[in-house]
Design a protein around this nucleic acid. Sequence first.
RNA 1: GGCACCAUAGCCAAGUGGUAAGGCAGGGGUCUGCAAAACCCUUAUUCUCCAGUUCAAAUCUGGAUGGUGCCUCCA
Length: 472
Amino acid sequence: MRIYNDLTRRKEELIPQQENHVTVYVCGPTVYDLFHLGNARPFVVYDTLRRYLLYKNVEVTYVQNFTDIDDKMINRAQALNITVKQLADEMIKEYYHDADNLNVMRADYHPRATETIPEIIEMISILEEKGYTYILHDGVYFDTSKFADYGKLSRRDLDDQEAGASERVELLDDKRNLSDFVLWKLKKEGEPAWESPWGEGRPGWHIECSAMSKKYLGDTIDIHAGGMDLMFPHHENEIAQSEAANGKPFVNYWMHNGFINVDNVKMAKSGGNFFLVRELAGEYGYDVLRFFILQAHYRMPLNFEEEPLMAATHGWQRILRSVENIEFLIANANPEFDQTQSAELSDYIITTIKEFERAMDDDLNTPDAFAAIFNLVRHVNIVSTDYALSADSLEKARNCIVELCAVLGLDAEKKAEAEIPADILEQVKLRDQAKAERDFVTADRIRDELNALGYKIEDTPQGPKVSREVEN
RNA sequence: GGCACCAUAGCCAAGUGGUAAGGCAGGGGUCUGCAAAACCCUUAUUCUCCAGUUCAAAUCUGGAUGGUGCCUCCA
């Protein structure tokens, strides 16, 4: 599999340090509020990467942190008159609610910054011993000028940055360099704090990821992922800290996803132009949101709009209906089937899987992966209307669609699993009798009644097909 | 001021040297008692524009235009 590595700005073959075992660290949410669609993109995208690696029988150790202590946490907790810990516990619960429904697998480790304090302090101490830090009145700082490779990920030249930015960015305070950042913030009145060699305080933002990554995955990890906006300064700073402290490369492959925009402007809490996943799910359903995210390539900007959301709704329905239709055909399969066409369908399935894997192997090209699935859907629809297919080949087609969707974290069986109650089936039978007697008034009345109850009847060459409309 | 990214049909979106995937929407049709689903036809001689390289460019190079992001919390 090739992935685009932001460190080299090229697609590279993914070669993990340990054969057949990939370590992944994804920057998780700051748990001060429900997350919005833009926040959801990395969760869904890197979950899909994980699922695909698992599908390829590659072992994955996956870490996604919770940032549960920072200014936003403190401010929100104060506003709600609860402790920071209470806020974090509550919001982590809410995170799981949305993430589980988006079918984002739980990470192998979901560390919290506040539960990694000893490791953070240890790392700062090492940096201090090695001479990378200095102390100001409000905390311990990292001196970026001491780290020769600073800027290698985001390709920034510190002097140029400072020259132009000084017009609009506040002055350096007492920092030695504009890009220097705080490792340990000394306690201010009313803030949660932990003991440390530098006095009571709390970790700066960047150090937590370095410490948690090291704690669970070691000095050098295979993949570190997050949103584009984290590339600088967050990930740049992580590299500086980790490599300065560990003396080893921090990350082999950096992956960054593009933003979700609203009217072509980045969706952000601070911009006020955000849509919570919780709210959107009520309108479109979690599956559709996941489908929507994955129908664009993860590095491209994705504009949030009504029409594409509806397109995602209908596109996903097309797949669900196809699975449902195939299952109906299997249940009513004719023992006298067309051998040539059945064999040909089996071949087409193999082609589909190849196309799907080719797409996914190419830097997680999920739009192309969907195209492969849709091609199979159309193919099955075409041959199954003209020929009787073997139950075996139909089953393979059904399983192929379901399995490939599952790799993308989408459950295409959900709808089909809904049981139809006996009394509904009884009504369907009555309608069929009325139809046979050409009593279409009665037949249509029954159909309308069942529609009102949420059941859909479709007449097919194999007889009436009844299905339940699935709510989101 | 610096550093990046994006520009493909009505909409969304792949494709990065070999003659424009896929989804949605629209129009027409087949099937149906009527529907639904499905299928067929139709929708970009062309990929923001201008030059250049090449037998060949949406794809490479240079330039222009428009839009966005980061440099401050940020997925």
